[in-house]
């Protein structure tokens, strides 16, 4: 085994995802600690890999072909196994996205490696890999140690990209995709231009205190002005006011944006668990005793129907 670190990098339509530079930054640090190289696997045609070279990647393995352009576990799994065989890395890093969690777990089992999923920090300690990750949806933080070869998926937004110019030399890797048992039949673009909750820098979320689905324009307006994604509490999704895909919490999505604005959300334990690792939390609630204020950096005691239009207007001017 080498002391190298292998990244599985995600891209869409020829462009790297934001997470690519986050895992490159984490991977560079680990590779330096291990005294190895940082190698990135890019599966998909015509991807501009220059940003990887600018963020610490020594070498880029490119796998091209129509089968790899859109992620499927089978095609990207075959590419990752081929890259792992060539590099024999001590650590494989992926983004803890839907694809990265699925592929990381699958590859860990295929390669018989220890898996840390959804890490928020990772470093090498001698030859071992040590990572921190939230458990119980963030109610506790664990330190995990993998003595042998490891696979680590890194939570989006947890690590800030750092520029670090390296060669990033591109080398083509030839991989034959296996016969597909999983076929993508169709892809629906989202109806609204919703930003993926788990990767959003800012989230505006609404709870029961919004009064009903008819008030959701207040959430959407503020989210639009801030360039934020929008979410909802479990009570709201269970009541059918908003789709389940928007639910933030232990039984929905765990998020850690830079800014989380909770509107009319009282702060049930399972909701707090899903968002309390956000960098800055702002809460608007008319109940001054609401538990959400205990985890908030800024609290506004007031009715969302009055406060949100004020905030949206002020933000529109402020950000103009």
């Amino acid at each position: 085994m080498s002391n190298d670190v292998l990244l599985h990098v995600e891209s869409a339509h020829g462009a790297l995802k934001k997470s690519a530079l986050e895992i490159a930054t984490a991977g560079r640090r680990v590779a330096d600690q291990l005294g190895g190289q940082l190698v990135a696997l890019v599966a998909g045609s015509g991807v501009d890999t220059a940003p990887l070279a600018a963020h610490g990647v020594d070498k880029v393995l490119t796998v091209e072909g129509a089968a790899f352009d859109r992620y499927t576990l089978e095609a990207h799994g075959a590419a990752l196994l081929a890259a792992a065989e060539q590099v024999a890395p001590r650590a494989v890093l992926l983004a803890a996205s839907v694809a990265g969690k699925e592929l990381g777990a699958w590859a860990a089992a295929r390669l018989d490696r220890g898996l840390v999923a959804d890490a928020i920090e990772v470093h090498a300690d001698g030859e071992a890999l040590v990572a921190h990750k939230p458990k119980y949806a963030g109610k506790a933080h664990a330190t995990l140690r993998v003595a042998g070869p490891a696979v680590v998926s890194v939570r989006p937004n947890a690590i800030a990209p750092e520029a670090n110019a390296k060669a990033g030399e591109r080398v083509a890797l030839s991989v034959t995709a296996p016969e597909a048992r999983i076929r993508v039949e169709s892809v629906e673009a989202p109806g609204t231009k919703q930003i993926e909750l788990t990767e959003a820098d800012a989230i505006v979320s609404g709870g029961r205190g919004m009064g009903g689905p008819e008030s959701w324009n207040l959430i959407l307006d503020l989210a639009e002005v801030l360039g934020a994604a929008h979410g909802a509490s479990r009570a709201v999704c269970d009541a059918g006011w908003r789709p389940h895909a928007e639910q933030v919490g232990q039984t929905g999505k765990t998020v850690s944006p830079k800014l989380y604005i909770a509107c009319g959300i009282s702060g049930a334990i399972q909701h707090l668990a899903g968002m309390s690792s956000s960098k800055v939390i702002v809460a608007v609630n008319k109940d001054p005793e609401a538990p959400i204020f205990k985890v908030s950096d800024y609290g506004i005691v007031g009715d969302v129907h009055q406060v949100l239009p004020l905030l949206t207007d002020a933000a529109r001017t402020f950000l103009a």
């Binding site: 018989d112 506790a140 993998v146």
Partner: peptide, 15 residues
């Protein structure tokens, strides 16, 4: 098990 939990802590308190 290939992964060892060496510690578990409550998340850092907020200001």
């Amino acid at each position: 098990s290939l992964v060892e939990t060496t510690s578990l802590e409550l998340p850092p308190a907020r200001g």
